[in-house]
């Protein structure tokens, strides 16, 4: 298992004290493409943040590549994260003051390892941005930026790539290209991908889809079609006692 969560609970203080995760246990096998789905406020993003070590669960255990990260304190946690994990976010999160090339090499520079330049060039070629290394993020379209973010994640050869709505800000065609690249990473490089998404079409590209509602895992589907995912989503959403009012941001 590349990522394992055991009985993870997370409550956000303030307001009503929302229980975002309520005893979630789930594992994501190495070299697989996983999608996490659920209505807004179901705890998708919290699950991802806890699994990736961006946030700490209130209780329960999180294992990243077999290592329990709940025990780690800063800066060991950050070091473990940058060794094992890559990120792709809806809002790209590139550094505007750095060129694409520097952005892609940034995690390795921060880790203090000698950047694998040949591999970085190969990654840039794979995402179709060879020759644009010296451009700035501001000069790119949204799809191109997301591909840079993906290149940045891949350049460090992580065990797991966590993707939070990677296609959320992209049009269908561009989104499909990004998903193709993610699939390729799983197939060619054996990377594990955990992707949070709203889109049934995006989720249908995954090997496995986990459904979340009110902080609990309700069902999961193996290699479903987009129609199956959509049907399951409708069921999950209607199954809730009250209409969803929260937001997952």
């Amino acid at each position: 298992m590349a990522v394992e969560l055991f009985d993870v609970t997370k409550t956000y203080s303030g307001g009503a004290g929302v229980r975002a995760l309520d005893g979630v246990s789930v594992g994501f096998a190495a070299g697989t493409f996983n999608a996490v789905m659920g209505p807004s406020g179901s705890g998708k993003s919290t699950l991802l943040q806890c699994a990736a070590g961006l946030d700490r669960p209130d209780s329960g255990k999180v294992l990243l590549a077999g290592q329990e990260i709940g025990q780690l304190r800063e800066p060991q946690l950050t070091q473990a994260r940058r060794r094992l994990v890559g990120f792709v976010f809806q809002s790209y999160n590139l550094l505007d003051s750095l060129s694409l090339w520097h952005n892609v090499l940034l995690p390795q520079r921060l880790a203090g390892v000698r950047p694998d330049r040949a591999w970085a060039r190969e990654v840039m070629r794979r995402v179709g941005l060879a020759g644009r290394e010296q451009d700035r993020p501001a000069q790119l379209s949204g799809g191109q930026r997301q591909r840079v973010a993906l290149a940045r994640a891949l350049a460090a050869r992580p065990e797991v790539i966590f993707a939070d709505e990677p296609t959320g800000a992209l049009d269908l065609a561009t989104g499909r290209e990004v998903l193709d690249l993610l699939r390729e990473a799983v197939a060619d490089l054996g990377t594990t991908i955990v992707m949070v998404t709203h889109g049934p079409a995006a989720a249908a590209r995954a090997d496995r889809v986990v459904f979340l509602a009110d902080g609990r895992i309700t069902t999961e589907l193996a290699a479903p079609s987009a129609e199956q995912v959509a049907a399951q989503m409708t069921a999950v959403t209607n199954g809730r006692a009250v209409a969803s009012v929260g937001s997952n941001r």
Binding site: L54, E74, P75, T78, Q79, R81, R82, F87, F89, N93, L94, L95, D96, S97, L106, P107, L110, A111, R152, A156
Partner: peptide
């Protein structure tokens, strides 16, 4: 924002 992005790609507080 810049700091947040840097943290996400693995910068420690000290870095």
């Amino acid at each position: 924002r810049e700091y947040a992005d840097l943290r996400l790609v693995g910068a420690t507080a000290r870095q």
